[in-house]
Amino acid sequence: MNERHRFWQRALRLLSLGVPREASSALLGSDHSLQQERWLRSLQRENSHSIDWHDRLPDIPFVIMDMETTGFSPQQGDEILAMAAAKTVNGLVTGTYMTLVKPEKPIPEHISDLTGITAKDVMFAPPLAEALRTFVPFIATGVLVGYHIGHDVSFLRHVLWHHYRQRWSGRFIDMQPIVGLVHHPCPTLDDALACYGIDCPRRHTADGDVEAMVKLWAILLGELHELGIETLHDLYAALSRH
């Protein structure tokens, strides 16, 4: 592992823990002592407990996330083309993120037809390893939410391990079973948006899908409240019985 790779590995670790950029710069000097490593482990434990199971859902920061990819299997070489996310509290957006990603291989024609992303669009986009340095700190501040989010999390876990030997262990929640809990089963995001009358004019774009899911999530929070599901613990318990 060369020195540049070690630097970015440490930087990603700090930023993913929510350490401000200024503090990260100070910590990423030439002296990487055992004391600093212990401090990092301590901060990791503190960060993992920052969201309590009994926190009220309206008080918890949820990060709505979506990726556009060239397929379904990062292990088989499928790549990320776009990443978007929106930080929310009680259904209100407090920050957004969007980036295209330059893939290592040509974009399949059927993926360009679906997403609208062409080779020209990503010509000057950052490569994935670079994009992760800003994307991971953004999404690490809350519980991830998405429709069939397991797809996005599988890519996230794979690329973090591949590029930085870092594991993603943050909490995440799939909207699809929540829709089934409060309304009726909607197998796809298109089904759910149609059920709730939410328009998504830029479907199959990362930021367009996030924008639509933000609206859906705000509605779901209200419906969960009406069912007496008030905390993260209540939500997981209800889903386990459903």
Score class of each variant (00 low, 15 high):
Ile51Glu: 06
Val93Lys: 15
Arg45Trp: 08
Glu37Arg: 13
Gln36Tyr: 02
Phe7Trp: 10
Leu40Ile: 14
Pro187Ile: 02
Gln166Asp: 09
Glu109Ser: 13
Arg203Lys: 12
Leu221Val: 03
Ser33Asn: 11
Tyr164Lys: 09
Leu189Ile: 00
Thr69Gln: 02
Gly91Ala: 04
Glu79Ala: 01
Asp191Trp: 00
Ala206Asp: 01
His49Ala: 14
Pro58Asn: 02
Gly222Ala: 12
His162Ser: 07
Asp31His: 11
Gly222Pro: 06
Val210Asn: 07
Leu181Gln: 06
Gly142Asn: 08
Ala23Pro: 00
Ala85Lys: 09
Tyr97Gln: 10
Met1Gly: 15
Lys102Tyr: 08
Arg13Pro: 01
Leu57Cys: 04
Thr231Arg: 03
Gln36Phe: 05
Leu12Ile: 03
His183Arg: 13
Met65Ala: 08
Ile51Tyr: 10
Pro137Thr: 00
Asp191Met: 00
Gly208Phe: 03
Gln176Glu: 11
Thr118Val: 01
His158Ala: 01
Ser169Val: 09
Thr205His: 12
Asn47Val: 11
Asp31Arg: 13
Asn47Trp: 12
Gly18Ile: 04
Ile117Phe: 10
Pro185Gln: 10
Val143Ser: 03
Trp168Phe: 09
Trp217Pro: 03
Glu37Asp: 13
Pro127Met: 03
Val101Pro: 15
Arg21Leu: 15
Arg157Leu: 04
Ile51Pro: 01
Ala192Met: 02
Leu239Lys: 13
Asp66Glu: 14
Phe72Pro: 07
His158Gly: 01
Val89Ile: 15
His242Leu: 04
Phe7Leu: 14
Asp191Pro: 00
Lys102Cys: 11
His158Thr: 01
Asp152Gly: 06
Arg41Ile: 04
